[in-house]
Design a protein around this nucleic acid. Structure first.
Lengths: 217, 217
DNA sequence: TATTGTTTAAAACGCACGTTTAAAACTACC
DNA sequence: GGTAGTTTTAAACGTGCGTTTTAAACAATA
């Protein structure tokens, strides 16, 4: 099997990146966990940056594809006269479920995704963010366009901010999910899962989306 | 002036930590920006970890103190028959304003704070999180106790999750504020500030807090 | 089987990091 | 003014990192 090395590197890297982040994970720990020679990363991926991109692309591709198909199906069925509140929750549910389905295939990819978004937005000179929006931005633009319809009274700027407040719920929930689930297990003896979190946040995001506008511009 | 070195280190460290995070900021860049000898950090703070703690303590102290006094004042004036929705916004506004006021004294401390929370919740074996809750947890427990009154229909577990969803809005907004403000400036030619963001998110958090409960437990 | 191209292996390179050291400079007090 | 304690300085130490190199092992083809 020729690609066994590549896959083992990607799997190990995903786990370590999800647990300790990009910079705090060394190629030496990745390659040792993958039981692969150290030089294999640079041989197959060129550099550590190339590996990070390969890891993220592996789930970002399916995620956007999944999102895209679900969104167009949603837009098709939109003409029927339905409750706007309900439609909003369906739309937000699509986003949550897309994340969820990607996570089902690989439990760690979603944590990597959240880290990716967080680091991308944490640097104002966001080359990573620009790369993400250039590569996968179309799907998210599509999502934003559909979401925009449910917040017609906002200006574009107000919607921009509100959208990122909603994104904060999603990203923080995912990136903190491991810690929060552990606390929940210990404190309330309740074994939840990431699926339940993703289901939980949909009505919360919907309410946040519909909150009155106060901004002065 | 004896403590000039210490203060210059703290100031420079805060700026660099806010901009590039803890691990990606080296003592060499900090000491060179502070125009101070490299060894000064280890001399005055013992280690890099000690410096990080000193930087965070410098604003975490005032923040919790500020929060504490505002919360007790809030609790005093609570007996009057007021709109619950309005009181909730006041309470959330206290949290936002506490962050805001700390940020006014030092523009970068709030970004460091957001990074701190993010990294604390990103590791499930969160020694940093436990240290934070042990050191400053009392004020946040107090806040949670007051917030809890506005969500009486939830179980403790449901409240736990909902609280962290709200926290996601706050933390993501702060940690992404620099990037988002830059995008907003470029895209909408609108010069906003962190103060406006803090004011913006209050009604959003309030709506998120009041969202219906769906969770199965 | 010989040859070519691809993958793995072990070792080393250069670099940046946090930290330590030991002497110099400074400060304050007798 | 000399001395003890504190702070600053310059240099080096050891470590771990990403990366490169060179050769060996392997695979496929003729």
């Amino acid at each position: 099997m020729t690609s066994s090395t590549i896959d083992r590197i990607l799997d190990a890297a995903e786990v370590e990146f999800a647990a300790h982040g990009f910079v705090e994970t060394s190629l030496r720990t990745i390659t040792s966990k993958a039981k692969v020679n150290l030089a294999a990363v640079n041989y197959h991926f060129g550099s550590k940056k190339g590996l990070i991109q390969a890891v993220t692309d592996r789930f970002l591709g399916p995620l956007t594809k999944n999102l895209q198909t679900q969104l167009s199906a949603y837009e098709m069925a939109l003409t029927e006269t339905q409750d706007d509140e309900q439609e909003l929750q369906v739309l937000l549910g699509i986003l949550a479920r897309s994340c969820q389905q990607v996570a089902q295939q690989n439990h760690h990819s979603l944590a990597v995704f959240a880290r990716l978004i967080n680091t991308a937005y944490s640097q104002s000179q966001g080359h990573l963010r620009k790369h993400l929006t250039k590569q996968y931005g179309a799907s998210f633009m599509y999502f934003m366009k559909l979401l925009r319809r449910h917040m017609p009274l906002m200006t574009h700027e107000q919607f921009f901010w509100r959208f990122h407040y909603l994104l904060g719920i999603l990203v923080f929930s995912i990136s903190s999910s491991e810690a929060l689930l552990a606390i929940c297990e210990r404190e309330y003896a309740s074994s939840r899962s990431l699926d339940q979190i993703m289901a939980d946040i949909v009505p919360v995001m919907a309410s946040a989306a519909q909150a009155p506008i106060i901004g002065d511009s």
